[in-house]
């Protein structure tokens, strides 16, 4: 059963994550395992996956659920294939990050927090500073940094992402 939900590859990765911690500390593997599982599942988690990980790690389902809901990089609903996070924290705001968000919203015809109709992009409502303040304004697309953004640069980056 569980083997149908978590692929052999994922199980192997989870085993190697477990080896980072004392053998009786299974909960410690939850965060990194969830990142792997989410990555394999088009960027989001669901009840079934959460339950499968709990079973595989031999921890309570609620333990996994608590982690999945606390950290902002976990999505509990389907999202577009490519995640865009524009930093709008102080340093980026001073360099006009709000206009960057507005531009992307218009370009993709969505509001922040939404995915495009064709499911190609998800524009995350990012609250955190992404630790690239000297490159403001900046965004991450699938966790790759793009800094000193201009509207032209954004066009190039987003138009360059292939539909597959």
């Amino acid at each position: 059963m569980i083997h149908d939900i978590l692929s052999e590859n994922v199980r192997k990765e989870i085993d190697s994550i477990r080896s980072k911690f004392p053998h009786d500390k299974n909960k410690s593997s939850i965060i990194e395992s969830l990142l792997i599982i989410q990555h394999e599942n088009n960027g989001y988690l669901n009840e079934e996956l959460i339950g499968a990980l709990a079973q595989y790690l031999n921890v309570q389902k609620i333990d996994v659920y608590e982690v999945a809901t606390f950290y902002s990089m976990f999505n509990l609903k389907p999202i577009g294939k490519n995640t865009i996070s524009v930093c709008t924290n102080v340093s980026c705001m001073l360099r006009n990050s709000d206009q960057i968000v507005e531009y992307i919203e218009k370009k993709l015809k969505i509001k922040i927090g939404e995915s495009t109709k064709d499911n190609k992009f998800y524009l995350k409502d990012e609250m955190e500073c992404l630790a690239a303040c000297n490159g403001a304004p900046m965004m991450q697309v699938n966790h790759v940094n793009y800094e000193n953004l201009t509207f032209e640069k954004i066009d190039k980056i987003l138009d360059g992402i292939k539909d597959d």
Partner: peptide, 8 residues
Amino acid sequence: DESEPGTC
């Protein structure tokens, strides 16, 4: 964890 706004 570097996440204090302004820190990079």
